[in-house]
């Protein structure tokens, strides 16, 4: 059978929920392992003193994108049946900026705030509370922002389509950029350590 298994009808909704719990457990575990349940650690990324956020995120993206590429190339995964978040150019441009502003003020993002709260941090609980407040507020102003939020839709629109390169070539570029970013991050961290 070709994956995705759930899409192919191999799993009941109840088994799907067991998978949700298991994947969530692993996700939360790895976030905490790296120290991403700590607002101090995440904030250091933005003060350029600790690049854990960049390393974890970029490594996860590279790992997953290479895995998806090879599984589909080997015929084990039907990429056409994996849901790719749809592109809405302006809402994601503006939403991303608003999100980033909130992120640096809060010191935690939604997933890491859950981990922070679970490990006893009061500021993590407050960020989760703030997120819910913001989501309620968005719901209240939805009639006003609805038009903008659904503007400039591009459907499933991927980087290979954008730059006119093959899937494999796009990933090669991504891997090279990631390796350069890791090198730069290590260099900046070691320079700081030497200065301290």
């Amino acid at each position: 059978m070709i994956a995705p298994l759930y899409e192919a009808g191999a799993l009941s909704p109840r088994s799907g929920l067991v998978v949700a719990l298991a994947l969530g457990l692993a996700f939360g575990f790895f976030l905490e392992r790296a120290g991403l349940g700590s607002a101090r650690k995440l904030s250091a990324q933005f003060q350029l003193t600790d690049f854990t956020v960049l390393k974890v995120m970029f490594t996860a993206i590279v790992t997953a994108s290479l895995g998806v590429f090879w599984l589909s190339r080997l015929g084990a995964l039907d990429l056409g049946r994996v849901y790719v978040p749809e592109t809405y150019l302006l809402p994601q441009l503006v939403g991303g900026a608003v999100f980033g502003a909130g992120f640096v003020v809060a010191g935690l993002c939604p997933g890491t705030a859950c981990v922070s709260a679970a490990t006893g941090r009061g500021d993590g609980v407050a960020v989760v509370g703030g997120l819910l407040l913001g989501i309620f507020a968005y719901g209240a102003m939805y009639p006003v922002v609805e038009r903008f939020a659904s503007s400039t839709p591009r459907g499933t629109f991927t980087l290979p389509q954008l730059i006119g390169a093959s899937h494999g070539m796009t990933l090669l570029i991504l891997v090279v950029v990631a390796l350069l970013a890791f090198r730069g991050a290590e260099w900046l961290e070691s320079r700081r350590a030497a200065a301290a």
Partner: peptide
């Protein structure tokens, strides 16, 4: 934390994800 969280919540809804 509350204020940043609220701003992030609005941004995430607008961007359709976090």
């Amino acid at each position: 934390a509350l204020g940043g969280g609220a701003i992030m919540g609005i941004g995430a809804r607008l961007a359709k994800g976090c």
